[in-house]
Design a protein around this nucleic acid. Structure first.
Lengths: 347, 347
DNA sequence: TTGTACGCGTTATCAT
DNA sequence: ATGATAACGCGTACAA
């Protein structure tokens, strides 16, 4: 006989002829009753169709939900599709699951009023990227543990990489040769939502955005190699997406004189540029060298495989989750990046 | 002045000199009080650092959490990395966000005892793939609305594609020519966790798994074209992953006589096979034709781009979410697939 | 080892 | 239009 209406702990205890406390203990505190009784309770509860304590009630009572909130920049849909965010999520998921935590996805571009208080449930948060100010303060205001990723904030733990150094390293390497004519394909450098080149004034803007750090790294290396890059040689791409990247790459590769080095701020952009270069019958790396940033899985499978900076995105996720669960008060971790030389550069 | 300890609705009402009911109404039922008072309450609450009703308490009281649980086959980490699952999630996320729902990720390979009752929170579930029996019944037992994807279950709504038809269509197309020597690179056809060929006995097994449906489609088309495929020409790959796929592709492409058609059960497998074929200096499609299944984004970017069956994974996700939210009682949707001819087949 | 009873923060009903 | 109050289902101190 199947009872349709969900039952609760109290009803179960009544059925079994024990108290609610005993049933609760059977689920939460094995040491508080005999193993035999515990087993009987669990078994009979299952037979009755009771799945264990209700999470909302338990959370309310204990003040802990075993749920971790992960808030992503932009829309959830976009973040899911972005290879870097995706790898980060993989790392987070791996650790959370191993610790029996659940993962609540929150989108960072919702207005606070729409959040409907979902931030009150999780025991802690991982915030990825430049969450909008409003949501960010919302979360901080909960007073719960927070770890931010790819973002500096002095009051919480964080996981970052040294973007400037990574960009500097790869640019320094590829700009070694004689007669290099580099351009930069950058992401989110200014507020515009269309592909365009920067102006000199744009270059002056101060910002802690990661794309700005990468830009600084490129420019510094270029200066050191004696081939300054003007604002006109820097493209702005509004989002890290193949289609936008292709537009920028096309503009860059069809200007005269044609650049022979493309410094791309992400692998997604670099791979789009690579495809376009081939479409234009340019040889890579002979006619044009291309560098990426991130080292996403697809990069090693391209033809030729992409020279890039490896940032260990999965590891970043793992680390962020561990920092959060181990409540490292406010540790600021900076992961190493690594130059990965493959086929899109001459050396 | 910042108050550290989180406050609750009652404290806020005390601060403001109104009742708890009024504050609650300010958040949930605008029509129950004057606009002026409501505005004052919301503003002052925010100033006090109150973020709105606690989700656990609200859920307990209302019996609704605004959270939707998404349970994925296998480990969460793996599912996130799989392009098809990933696209499905994108579609789900898009719809859920647009309806102000939150998304709780659950992994399908946890033992029920580890679930810690997380299934009691969501208002409904989307189940993807062949969830393990135990978790599946656990979820059904909650009595909450469920939509299953890529999986048939007569008591719930479902979203599926016709796998057999898709496989049949693409096989029929590619096996037209003279002198075709096909092999099948299949996924999860038997229980083994290593790459191997099937035996005749394996072919007999009945199963509702999607890979079995695809196999049936291939075999039917082959038979019709007069080129039967023996069990020895069918490879089993334990998981949909490049590395395993490469092993199978290598075995297949180094047998004599060399097959000239590779029917791959997923694009991930097909793309791995394509890379390997090129590594072996085989021309695609002249020496060997390759077909995929799924149509993941990377497939159109490969060289040559992959001929495959498009199943609209994102749309599947959207549909599943809508079915769930609109509480379509037990609608069983079958989405159309489409043959996408590109460069890895001769026509 | 087991049971009693209170409170976690909220919302809905009913009364004012 | 606003306020008082009783649940929602559970966990735990404390008593037995």
């Amino acid at each position: 006989m199947i009872i349709k209406k969900k039952l609760n702990l109290k009803q179960v205890s009544a059925h079994l002829g024990v108290s609610t406390a005993t049933v609760s203990n059977a689920f939460n505190r094995p040491d508080q009753l005999s193993a035999k009784l515990r087993e009987r309770i669990l078994r009979e509860a299952a037979e009755l169709g009771y799945n264990g304590p209700n999470l909302a009630a338990r959370t309310l009572r204990r003040g802990e939900s075993e749920v971790i909130g992960v808030m992503l920049l932009d829309s959830l849909k976009y973040s899911l599709s972005d290879p870097v965010a995706n790898q980060l999520l993989q790392g987070i998921a791996e650790v959370l699951v191993s610790r029996n935590k659940h993962m609540l996805l929150l989108s960072g571009n919702m207005h606070a009023t729409q959040q409907r208080g979902a931030e009150s449930l999780p025991d802690g948060f991982i915030l990825y990227g430049g969450i909008n100010r409003e949501s960010f303060e919302y979360i901080l205001n909960t007073g719960k543990p927070v770890v931010v990723v790819d973002f500096e904030y002095h009051e919480t733990a964080s996981v970052n990489i040294d973007n400037e150094k990574g960009a500097y390293t790869i640019a320094k390497h590829v700009l070694q040769g004689e007669d290099v004519r580099p351009v930069i394909l950058g992401i989110r450098l200014i507020e515009s939502d269309r592909v365009c080149r920067l102006t000199t004034a744009d270059l002056e803007l101060e910002s802690k955005e990661i794309s700005r750090s990468r830009l600084d790294g490129y420019l510094k290396a270029a200066k050191e190699q004696g081939c300054d890059i003007a604002a006109q040689q820097v493209w702005h791409i509004p989002i890290n997406d193949s289609e936008y990247a292709e537009i920028a790459a096309r503009e860059a590769l069809t200007t005269t004189p044609r650049p022979n080095v493309l410094l791309c701020m992400s692998d997604v952009v670099a791979l789009a540029a690579l495809r376009l270069a081939k479409e234009l019958n340019l040889r890579v790396p002979e006619d044009v060298q291309i560098t990426g940033f991130d080292d996403i899985p697809e990069s090693s499978r391209a033809e030729p495989p992409l020279t890039t900076i490896c940032q260990q995105s999965i590891e970043k996720g793992r680390l962020a989750a561990r920092l959060l669960l181990d409540k490292a008060p406010k540790e600021n971790v900076v992961l190493e990046t690594r130059l990965v030389l493959r086929g899109t550069t001459k050396s």
